[in-house]
Amino acid sequence: MNMETVINMVLLSLLVVTAIAIVRIKDLFAAAMLAGIYGLLSASFFVMMDAVDVAFTEASVGAGISTLLMLTTLAMTGRFEKISGNYRPRLALVLVALTGALLIYGTLDMPAFGTAAAPVHEHVAPRYLNDSYAEIGIPNAVTSVLASYRGFDTFGEVVVIFTAGIGVLALLMRAEKPTPRTQTPTASMHEHMVLRIVAKMLIPLILLFGLYVQFHGEYGPGGGFQAGVIFASAFFLYSMLFGLSEARKVVNHVVVQILAALGVLLYGSVGIVSLMNGKNFLDYSALSADAVHGQHLGILAIELGVGITVTTVMIIIFFAFSGRNQIEGEKD
């Protein structure tokens, strides 16, 4: 049993322990924090599994934004779960055990973990690993597949994110006027001088790091999805420390909404341009005389589109939630 196996098993066991703690705990605030820990643990597990890009995303989403949104929701819906409901946990337990047993029975004829000859590695993966450097010209195979080979798929995902952003806006937006903003909403934070100064120094660095992740995604782990989430978190930090109304001065709501749509549009337009040049939709080799150079251009453009949309949708979601929270707070 080597070291890697040990770490792997420890991480997986910790995940199970955290999940059981989430089931048992009645304090939703603690449950949300535990869910954040769960996200961070799974991110560490993804690093062990060589999925560095995925780990990156999970660390910023699962441990960061997801927890933040849960906590903002809890501020509005109440911290504690009702103790007794008329649910029948025993029936649920039987059902869950039965389903679990069937699923485990299903795993029995799966190839053992880590085998190189497993069917999953024999379909398109060898092509991606062997030919992508010659065809796309960038070392990060994940980015090649994400942005070029499966570009159409990724386009769909970006549209889903955009749609979810619109959905949140439709559900939570209210006419902006009923907030007289007499009090500063996060007055308590204003008194924490250390926090404020440290955050002020951190925010430019976070933004810079976001840009690095965005434009270095072809060579190392990173890309539009991760960069978008990181970039957005700098704005979250700002609005948590300096208050929502201050943050709204920095980030114009209309501009953010237009940018979210523009990101999707940029992605789609790249596809249309390649169609116009007689190639397939999102076949970037049409963008330049040299096919590999065209791929580079195309990937840069669509990653930028992804980055813009993810950043702005995350900002829209966060502002919609915390804006609602603020109005709620004034009503009570």
Binding site: D53, I161, F225
Partner: peptide
């Protein structure tokens, strides 16, 4: 999974 995570947080 990378795209699924970001779609997951949006949903």
């Amino acid at each position: 999974i990378l795209t699924a995570i970001v779609v997951g947080i949006a949903t």
